[in-house]
Design a protein around this nucleic acid. Structure first.
Length: 804
RNA sequence: GCCGCGGUGCUGGAAUCGGCAGACAGGACGGACUUAAAAUCCGUUGGGCCUAGCCCGUGUGGGUUCAAUUCCCACCCGCGGCACCA
């Protein structure tokens, strides 16, 4: 009988589906394990082999955990709101609902032919009104707690998608989606107060088993810095300008202050500014620059002095000049900085350009600094700083800050790079925001009983570009009675961004049909947190930050019982095309899993994706490698079939089999998938050399171990071996150390650290006897050559090194 | 510029509580089977030389050690992220 994947895979997929083999019980005696994939966007082109690398890995973990006696939750769903379906609708007039449904069908089929063991009864779809009812519910709670507010703000605007974007969605000054250059636009926006959670988002990173890289990225993105707010009085006005600094120790070196051109502080001082025309011209110029222009002008500082305005340094009462310059950002800190050219590179550059004084106030304790050449930005000890001279930078920061605080000129302050999250989009295909605007009552949230607020059908999907979504054109929908006063009112027409539905979807799998609450709290306590979360690294500061924020909020209002949603996170390395390029439709180098399944079978696809290399590394697809894996599975098939003619395994074979159990189990625990497959291959090679030693007892164990990787072939072999029940229901083998033969070992013999021989001994040999034997060996005697032995190093069971 | 990760044969990679570098796979070459091809099976495959043997070899240079791909220092290169954040 030959290995025929096409036949057996169909057979077992049908069987598993019909018998709901992979169904998860909500509550059982078993320990829980929640194994989650980042759910896909159901795009029209379907999934490629890169997506499956992640799905196969979690599927292997899920199957192993089931065999190890865990109750495993391994669900999947669809993150189906988003631009591609909407853009397709604009072009063709076909409603996104229809395209989405079709695409889901296709992807579901792809997943099923790959033998992924999802519990399909828990499928969710973010565009179902039963689902987004709860997305809207969370929004209302955020609103209720003051964490969602509407504000007129200059936000990132994509002129091509005609919608506002969050900072996280702008990459290099371009729209993350379409690549168009973004501009700033003043729009009234819904904003979520993610900054209220900045500290907790930062601190709790420590508790997570996530890749360093992702933690680091979130840390940088949150960008916490501790410092002082210091008030500079403006001479003859009674007004003050507050600056933020992390370097209060350099305050004596401040020779001017700089304001962000677009900040209100500048216009506030208009009366005092003698060159207002020049200044306002500079402000206008800055405002009209795109993000991209501003980024590209990073080098080459320029600005304008506010003539007639002088600020007073509160530490020494000295008058300093005041500038406006676009290297100071209105959106960070107070929008104003104290400039210390001797100890800040940017201030140094600016001071050189405008010929401003440079006063040195910090010197290194050891080494040299030359502030006529460049700024010295590190810590050191203070000079030219009155009574603070001679102090270390660190203590001086505190001392100077405290002394100003006592006089009412300074406050301790923590700043973040993280900004609040602009949450409204001027597009159609998203969750409607459940708010009504009434002239009399202002903003009125819908009541929970009125949810879901369903997305109405429209005739035109085209975004308006005016800051309103296409929903604004549907008068029957927009015009409503105010729930409070009964007067005429209008619905909010903006929709939620892509990320909304994915912020909490992992909770809905626990209880996907609940129409009373978001999730039953018993179920939530049973299953949270997610034990393993697998997905691409591209979501490092988007989905992963947003959903942590929502989760913490849900924790605060008592919906969830854990502080963090995803305990352990692992990233998938990209699957590249054969040439090392990224797979893309335009390059025509995309490999679809369907074609691989068609030609070689799902088990080959699965094992190859895992065998390619380390899971988190980007590696190119290699058709020959796929064939190699297929060859291996064929050999394994024949090997197991042949085992029936052998009565029982030899003790050596049993030993090898137990070693295999140990190695495969250990590596899987470490999320290593490529090395277990290498062990399987070695094992198969060994069996081929010792065919008469390989009996059914060993074959059973081999098949169990391989099952999570290649479920179809193993289920079939299990049956062919005449075993009862499904292999899916078997227990994971445990290594019996007693059966592992290790009475003989090969000792590496070195002379002066170089390998000269290998000798076989009993495994418990001690140094004395080994030394004796080694000295008597001809090969080694030759190397020692009568020289004096200085030292003998003995590593038990491994190596002996004679130093002469 | 700053932060993070990495650099091993022709290729993907294996081996890091310091202890046989190159497991496993692919490719290439040689052979068996075949009328032939595919498939399958077997063998060889880091470089060099005075070829039963020895020397060199894990980005580069140095260090620690009986022993370094593994630890330390400096540097080079690649990838990813952030980027006027005061």
């Amino acid at each position: 009988m030959k290995y025929n994947p096409g036949e057996i895979e169909k057979k077992w997929q049908a069987y598993w589906e019909k018998n709901k083999t992979n169904k998860t019980e909500d509550f059982s005696e078993k320990q829980k394990y929640y194994c989650l994939d980042m759910f896909p966007y159901p795009s029209g082109v379907g999934l490629h082999v890169g997506h499956f690398k992640g799905y196969v890995a979690t599927d292997i973990v899920a199957r192993v955990k089931r065999m190890q006696g865990f109750e495993v939750l391994h669900p999947i769903g669809w993150d189906a709101f988003g631009l591609p379906a909407e853009n397709f609708a604009i072009k063709t007039g076909i409603h996104p609902e229809i395209t989405t449904e079709k695409n889901i069908e296709n992807i579901k089929h792809q997943m099923k032919i790959a033998g992924l063991s999802y519990d399909w009864d828990r499928e969710i779809n973010t565009t179902d009104s039963d689902y987004y009812k709860w997305t809207q519910w969370i929004f209302l709670k955020l609103y209720e707690k003051g964490l969602a507010y509407k504000k007129l703000l200059p936000i990132n605007w994509c002129p091509s998608c005609k919608t506002g974007l969050a900072n996280e969605e702008v990459v290099d000054g371009k729209c993350e989606r379409c690549g168009a250059e973004t501009t700033k636009k003043d729009i009234e926006q819904w904003i979520l107060k993610i900054t209220a959670y900045a500290d907790r988002l930062l601190e709790d990173l420590e508790t997570l088993d996530w890749p360093d890289r992702i933690k680091e990225m979130q840390k940088n993105w949150i960008g916490r810095s501790e410092g002082w707010e210091i008030d500079f009085g403006i001479k003859d006005t009674g007004k003050t300008v507050t600056v933020f600094t992390t370097r209060a120790d350099t305050l004596f070196g401040c020779t001017y202050i700089v304001l962000a051109p677009e900040s209100d502080i500048v216009t506030d001082l208009k009366d005092k500014i003698s060159n207002w025309e020049e200044v306002s011209g500079y402000i206008e110029k800055t405002k009209n620059k795109s993000d991209l222009e501003r980024i590209s002008e990073v080098k080459g500082k320029n600005g304008v002095e506010l003539k007639g305005v002088k600020a007073i340094n509160p530490i020494n009462g000295k008058e300093v000049r005041v500038f406006a310059a676009d290297y100071v950002l209105a959106s960070y800190g107070t929008g104003a900085v104290m400039a210390v050219p001797a100890h800040d590179e940017r201030d140094f550059e600016f001071a050189i350009k405008y010929d401003l004084p440079i006063i040195e106030v910090v010197r290194p304790r050891s080494g040299e600094s030359d502030i006529s050449e460049s700024a010295y930005v590190q810590d050191g000890f203070l000079i030219n700083s009155d009574t603070f001279s001679d102090m270390d930078s660190e203590s001086a920061r505190k001392a100077i800050g405290e002394s100003l605080k006592d006089e009412g000129f300074a406050r301790e302050r923590v700043n973040y790079k993280l900004h609040d999250w602009p949450f409204s989009r001027q597009r159609y295909w998203g969750e409607p925001i459940p708010i009504i605007h009434c002239d009399k009552c202002g903003m009125v949230p819908l009541e929970e009983k009125d949810l879901p607020l369903t997305l109405p059908h429209v005739d035109k999907y085209e975004p308006t570009g005016t800051g309103e979504s296409p929903l604004a054109a549907i008068e029957t929908w927009v015009n409503v009675k105010c729930p409070k006063c009964g007067g005429m009112a209008k619905r909010e027409t903006n929709t939620m961004p892509q990320w909304a539905g994915s912020c909490w979807y992992y909770l809905r799998y626990l209880d996907n049909n609940n129409d009373k609450s978001l999730v039953n709290s018993e179920k939530e306590k049973r299953w949270m947190p997610v034990d393993l979360y697998v997905g691409g690294a591209e979501h490092a500061v988007l989905h992963l930050l947003y959903s942590r924020f929502w989760h913490k909020f849900l924790y605060d209002i008592g919906v969830v019982s854990t502080k963090e949603p995803f305990q352990k996170l692992r990233n998938i390395g990209l699957v590249l095309a054969h040439d090392g390029q990224k797979m893309s439709k335009s390059k025509g180098n995309v490999i679809s899993p369907d074609s691989v399944v068609d030609e070689f079978g799902a088990d080959t696809l699965r094992v190859y994706e895992m065998f390619m290399g380390p899971f988190d590394q980007a590696i190119g697809w290699n058709e020959q490698g796929v064939k190699g894996v297929n060859r291996f599975l064929g050999r394994a098939w024949d090997m197991v079939i042949q085992s029936e003619s052998v009565a029982e395994s030899s003790s050596e074979m049993i030993s090898e089999t137990n070693k295999l159990i140990k190695k495969v189990s250990d590596d899987l625990e470490k999320m290593k998938f490529n090395t277990p497959i290498a062990f399987f291959m070695e094992y198969v090679n060994f069996v081929y050399e010792n065919k008469n030693d390989f009996g059914k007892d060993s074959a059973e164990i081999f098949v169990k171990l391989l099952f999570p990787f290649a479920p179809h072939i193993c289920e079939e072999l299990w049956q062919l071996l005449g075993e009862k029940g499904l292999i899916s229901e078997q227990e994971w083998p445990v290594c019996n150390e007693a059966l592992v033969k290790n009475d003989k070992i090969v000792l590496v013999v070195q002379v002066n650290g170089k390998v000269r021989d290998r000798m076989e001994f009993d495994s418990d040999i001690d140094q004395e006897r080994a030394e004796e034997a080694v000295k008597n060996s001809e090969v080694i005697a030759k190397w020692i050559g009568g020289k004096e032995i200085k030292k003998v190093v003995f590593a038990k069971g491994k190596l002996i090194n004679i130093v002469v």
